[in-house]
Nucleic acid binder design. Sequence first.
DNA 1: TTGTAAGCGTTATCAA
DNA 2: TTGATAACGCTTACAA
Lengths: 338, 338
Amino acid sequence: MNIGEIARRSGVSRSTVSYALSGKRSVSEATRQRIQAVIDELGYRPNAAARALKEGRTRTLGLVVPPPRRRLTPAQLEFVAGVVEATDRADLDLLLSPSGDDHDRSFERIVGGRRVDGVILMEIRLDDTRVRRLQGLRLPFVTIGRTARPQGMSWVDVDYAALIGRCVDHLADLGHRHIALVNRSAELLASGHGPAHRAKEGFADAVTRRGVEGVEVGCADDVAAGEACVQGILSAHPEVTAIATINEAALPGVQRALESAGLDVPGRFSIAGVTARHRAEQFHPQLTAADVPAVDMGATAVDFLVERITEPDAPPRRHLFVPPISLRNSTGPVPAPR
Amino acid sequence: MNIGEIARRSGVSRSTVSYALSGKRSVSEATRQRIQAVIDELGYRPNAAARALKEGRTRTLGLVVPPPRRRLTPAQLEFVAGVVEATDRADLDLLLSPSGDDHDRSFERIVGGRRVDGVILMEIRLDDTRVRRLQGLRLPFVTIGRTARPQGMSWVDVDYAALIGRCVDHLADLGHRHIALVNRSAELLASGHGPAHRAKEGFADAVTRRGVEGVEVGCADDVAAGEACVQGILSAHPEVTAIATINEAALPGVQRALESAGLDVPGRFSIAGVTARHRAEQFHPQLTAADVPAVDMGATAVDFLVERITEPDAPPRRHLFVPPISLRNSTGPVPAPR
DNA sequence: TTGTAAGCGTTATCAA
DNA sequence: TTGATAACGCTTACAA
């Protein structure tokens, strides 16, 4: 079933069928209807590969996701959801590439084989080899998160530094003088993970600015690590009365550790963070947090990417999201010292 | 950058380059190395669209997912993860199509435009229009879940009827005589949702077989519905001492309702279900449940699909998973009547 | 208003 | 061992 067959059965040339479909040339109403009838009868749809070959574009976007072996965080899931929806709204298709490190086969296939018109990258390192590869190929791309030198690229990101600063401000305003930062893991930090670095910096700045004591601890992205991490803080730094965190995956463990230590939240201990709304609401009690607008961010990334594809010479676009902190029930005044 | 350019620079014909790459014809070691050097230098990769056009296959699978507007359940997420990983292992690409209902634009693009060599469908209805469309197109597909008449098709599924039966058995063995089934929503049931139907049937069978009282209630896929649903059961049927459920998304609400009713689990109330392991372990106390092996199921679906693509005449494959019930801490002997 | 034909980048057949 | 060439299905410039 191809365009030639449709042409034959409608008694016209292939170009007329093509033009009837695209509307790029006027076709008499009579023949247009005849062609349409044949198309409907046979259920014809143009072959995407042939069209891509001829037009030099695939009408497809690529989304590079972290390998799903290790469960994605709620915010990551919402990035994906936002990208999926926005791509669909733009009538484009979406190719998924699970690629953690560089030189991933699937990444190379998609990107080198020109299977997509542009790529959305998430989980960006401060120095990211995939970014450099894409720049070398001159393939349009947008990052969710940003490198250390994001000039000249299109990206969306959350201002982790500012948000962690606001968490510290909020806690300090409530009288807390000893605050711990539960960051992402030390490995991630060492590998140049942007949010981990920027949270660390924002925390250090805020702590000096407010003249309070800060402890920063790394924590892997899982429940057990969260529990162990908080236990560690409580025993090594018993003076700490509040936590600020960007580690979504650890939150259930954090909660568990606080519960088993018998520390009532927010009566005896406070916690504030940066996380997807869903996670904040699942926390017990509900978590005071800056809600990462991840669905919006995914959709915005798609918008930016479409713009880079259709107008390669337009200046790059960027958006740094700074969502407000939603006051919920996990923060309260510092308890009177015993 | 195309094969002609590589040929020119290597001083050979395009066919020689093609054969050097595919190995389908012997090429002298000397020229092979010369060609490879040029390829490496220029970073050439064959254009996927041209290859797809010529070969008549895309090396791409399609995965039709429920629109992510409404958060996917843990089991659905694990299906996707399993499919993503297995597709990657098979060196194939994966095109994502968010399509709930029929006549979805993205579904039609992927399937009608022959963008994929085969399709994996999830959230199957007992009578599913997408399945019929795929059969009409003679496009290979595999379903996660199955229709009312799954003969002649390849599928993987979980035996919800049997598993809910086992939950009832387990609860009845513990002395419970009044058991409620928290099913998926009435709308889903009405629309012919397989698991909802099969859970309902399995529950009805088991309840008669064991001579206990059964109450079946529909419940939407969210926390609030779960809470309301359990409150309804407790007030309308105060004699109920145990719940069996397949509704993952409602579980946090179920837990909340039980807690606020002051019903200790498993001391005063028991609950068993069918859900992803992750969800079972998140429940408090950890949930006695048949753990849906969703990652395996996704991977198996990919295996079946690849087989249907490469050997269209081989008999269809199917696998009905019946995972054992993992005894955790949410079920106990029926409490003595007050 | 419509038709003819070139060309997109591959692979594979037929010749040499 | 290698090269020339047709063909995959489409879009579009050029003719009529």
